[in-house]
Amino acid sequence: MPRVLQPFEYLEPRSAAEATRILADYGTRAKAMAGGVDLLPRIRQRKICPEVIVSIQNIPGLDSIKEERGQLRIGALVTLHTAELDRLIKERYTALHEAVHHLASVQVKTMATLVGNLCVATPASDMAAALFVLGASLVVVSPDKERAIPIEQFFLKPGQTALQPGELVTEIVVPAPAPDSGSAFLKLVRTAADIAKVNAAVCLTVDGDACKEARIALGSVAPTTIRAPRAEAAIKGQKLTGDTIQAAARAAEAESRPITDVRSNADYRREMSGLLVGRAIKIAFQRARGQHE
């Protein structure tokens, strides 16, 4: 295994427009880079060999978290560390906070960005699961247009996103949580700084004991992060009891399509998909009802 990086050209555009022009010109020969924590090791391992790396670090305006018209907007240069410390995310977008908080080591958190993590398109992305249930979308710019991609349409398969050549993700947009809603994120790992064996995120809107709306997502148990619609159906419009939660957990188990790899095996992942969904429902339910665990 080589220890050195293959040579590449390194460019630092000053605007998103300039970045997208470069990305459009070079097409698949170029890669955009924010923190570089995933990109550089993959270049070293020869999994990819870009001729040009387009750093977006010098593009102004991408490094902030703000709330505008009830929406949370997270720029493409916001690091996990910054997001972890953000009070708004912690108080209102709990699943996302939990996903960021439990991810990786401090060293990685200070380099890695949320958007960068999503663009890697790993099926194990913790942020993706949280953003699925929070209903997020991504703002994508190209030389001639801007579009929004709902996060559920962003991942095509492992390592592949819906981005076209010349497109750059500039922001994550998360709608304001509904009143009487609560979210939770859980995962299983080998050590504290590890990629999830299984992760699960749940966001519920409740009316008393009943579940009005439910969004459930699972990661690391399918080629991309997935919603678990049958699990959602098992509790939507239902009273949240041991039985309905158990039914949702069983459905989630059935909806998972895990593989065996170096981190875990398929049977364990399937069983844990249900377990984590059940646990996350209970936590999200308590949060939605304003109770604290």
Partner: peptide, 16 residues
């Protein structure tokens, strides 16, 4: 060998 780096082969860190 499938666990040939510290992503795949997990040693405990200061967080553990």
């Amino acid at each position: 060998l499938e666990s040939d780096n510290f992503t795949s082969y997990k040693i405990p860190s200061s967080m553990d």
